[in-house]
Design a binder for these strands. Structure first.
Lengths: 209, 209
DNA sequence: TCAGACATGTAAGTCGTTACATGATTCA
DNA sequence: TGAATCATGTAACGACTTACATGTCTGA
């Protein structure tokens, strides 16, 4: 059956910006999409080959620089495939959360074990929130000055895009905000869960006397 | 290198409750963990075999019922492995969200395309929230009466667990609450993103005149 | 009697990561 | 000169899903 091929479309979508090498693509993912997407070379390069075989992208050797370099360009067929994918329904995000599994199963040991897991999780999420907030500040100041931050300009190519071309910047900001909302929700949940578990512990202690 | 084997530990953790067959395990996952975990038969049965080979579980043929049935019991070695896993750090949840990928890439088409994607996403999330709220109500009334709901009792075995044994119920409730918080956060983000995109659209329309 | 639940499994394929392997260029 | 970055790829493995395959028992 026809499967997802998420990497195919991720690459095609990025090639909508400009022709790029595998290395460039990897950087773009890391600079702009790392909060919600990742690609490894071991997946990227074979997929680029498959894309060329399928006629969705073309490869050309770049001889302008001394280095050996393969530049990939999206084809008309590739654009159509990308647009079809955009219009398709998106399947709901995965239903596998290792932390929640551990948390649930920890209850077979003791409530203290569950509480300890939550406390570690809280520390992780707080750290992540701090990172996100830092990126957020960078993006907000960039938006005010209408200048792409250095790191993004280097992968997107334009430092001062004209006429609304800074949509990239807005979309990067919004996807980051998604992360912020998610982390804040997790922190709120952690507090709620800690309160509930501590209350239950109290009650059990009383009942045992 | 030693990889995750999440299914191994999921199964071991569930076998901490009681000995079960592959079919029972599948049901337990579906009844109690489906918001954050899934297992397919094609994964479950081979893993059960591997667990037996590794000495972490034992298999015995159940002859009491007419049906052919394999019951798996966690071994002492299995318990130790489970406890080690619980104490290990949990790696942060995956960084691949197909919706956000689509949303980000859609900006190459038009802001209207991005807005349309958000609206579909919002409808999905609202629906999911309604489902969660329904389960929540069931669990809350169960907690008040201190009785496990029928469906859960059938997989956990006890309808009226004594002395704090209803921790399962609390943990199931809390993991569901995690889902509620997550969906609500997504809805809040969607509203924020829609406002931002519409404002940007306005501005671009004005600039074009 | 027949639908629905019980029950177990295999084969093929997809997706992805990690480790390995190699080498060129640039700049301090 | 040597570290960092640029640059491309393969091999092996791991984890999981889907589709296929097969059969039994229970109760309306």
């Amino acid at each position: 059956m026809a499967r997802k091929r998420k990497t195919w479309y991720a690459i095609l979508g990025l090639l909508m910006w400009k022709p790029m090498s595998g290395y460039d693509l990897k950087k773009m993912v890391e600079m702009a999409l790392s909060h919600f997407w990742s690609e490894s070379y071991g997946n990227l390069f074979p997929t680029l080959g498959a894309l060329v075989d399928a006629g969705l992208a073309s490869r050309r050797e770049d001889t302008t620089s001394g280095r050996r370099r393969h530049v990939y360009t999206i084809t008309v067929k590739g654009r159509r495939a990308f647009e079809r994918w955009l219009a398709e329904p998106t399947d709901p995000p995965q239903t596998r959360n290792e932390f929640l599994l551990k948390f649930f199963l920890s209850s077979r040991r003791s409530l203290d074990e569950s509480i300890a897991l939550l406390e570690v999780y809280r520390a992780q999420q707080r750290e992540r929130l701090a990172e996100y907030k830092e990126s957020e500040a960078v993006l907000e100041s960039a938006a005010r000055s209408r200048q792409m931050p250095e790191s993004l300009a280097s992968v997107f190519g334009t430092r001062r895009p004209g006429r609304g071309g800074e949509n990239e910047l807005l979309l990067i900001y919004l996807t980051l905000r998604h992360g912020v909302h998610a982390v804040e929700a997790r922190l709120a949940w952690i507090d709620e869960a800690l309160r509930a578990l501590r209350a239950r512990k109290q009650r059990q202690r009383k009942e045992r006397t």
